[in-house]
Amino acid sequence: MSSAARPLVEARNLVKHFPLRGSGRLAVRSVDGVTLTIGRAEVLGLVGESGCGKSTLARLLINQIRPDRGEVIMDGRDLLAMRQGELRRFRRTVQLIFQNPLAALDPRMRLIDSLMAPLAAHDTGTREECLEMIHAMLGEVGIDPGLVERYPGQCSGGQLQRIVIARALLLRPQFVVCDEPTSSLDASIRAQILNLLNDLRRRFDLSLLMISHDLRALRHICDRVAVMYLGRIVEMAPVEEIFQSPRHPYTRALNAASLLDEIGLDAAGRLVQGEPPSPVHPPPGCHFHPRCPLADETCRRQVPALERIAENHEVSCHHWRTSTS
């Protein structure tokens, strides 16, 4: 038995490189030594630009792909040591919600069949019992039961995302990874889905990993936020600290980018230069140095360690004291 104080998810030194075909030793260094924990009923935000490895990290955590190095402990058990049968039972406790709900549902299956499939796969009662569970869950996510006779192509994005959420929660998971769950939705629908997720996580005591490229979408729902850049976590802190007193220059740049209306183009443009480099050839030293306004010789040579600078606040920057101003 694990103690109650132990976090639900613990990842230590996760590394995942994807070798490039036909290029010898070159590899996309997608996740490059990530350590993090997610507590019970805690929501951790994971923010970063495309290609920073946040989706890969998510898939490592739910054991959808296996890491090259490192370990994932879920509820006190080593995920990577699990055998086939055990793993399938473990699948129930961990779920994934996708960016594009239309792609996450088989276009040739009615929604009700898509909802039924996972219950059948885990032998959850008779067909009638399953239907009852599905109808109860549809009520939770605010979908009219009549809708599930349709095919995915006949529903709106917001409705489909609710169905995808319902399907994930039907198995009563403890941990749900939401991979940009609202970025394919319109603003008015996005807010509905974020409210729904926030509501459901309280009612079902869920631990969530919320992945996004938009810090603003995370503010409402997250307890803590981890900022990722080129395969590494550069800052991790409670959500309000990320907004009020970000220490890493990249966090400040992301912050400004999502608050363009308040900060203005010029100020936001000054905080970061250029574009994210390729994860195949990450810059030496601090990965962020070529784009950083504070970079100096140390940054170019030495990789900054993830330093604990306050309770619950970690940052990996040689200049975190300077960047406070």
Binding site: I62, Q95, N100, A104, D106, A117, P118, A121, A168
Partner: peptide
């Protein structure tokens, strides 16, 4: 495709995925 990833994450068996998702599509 995402719906295959979804089916895997949901714990559907390989035969089920092959017969219900891959072949019909």
């Amino acid at each position: 495709r995402d719906y295959i990833v979804a089916a895997e994450v949901l714990g559907c068996t390989r035969t089920f995925i092959l017969l219900r998702h891959v072949i019909p599509n």
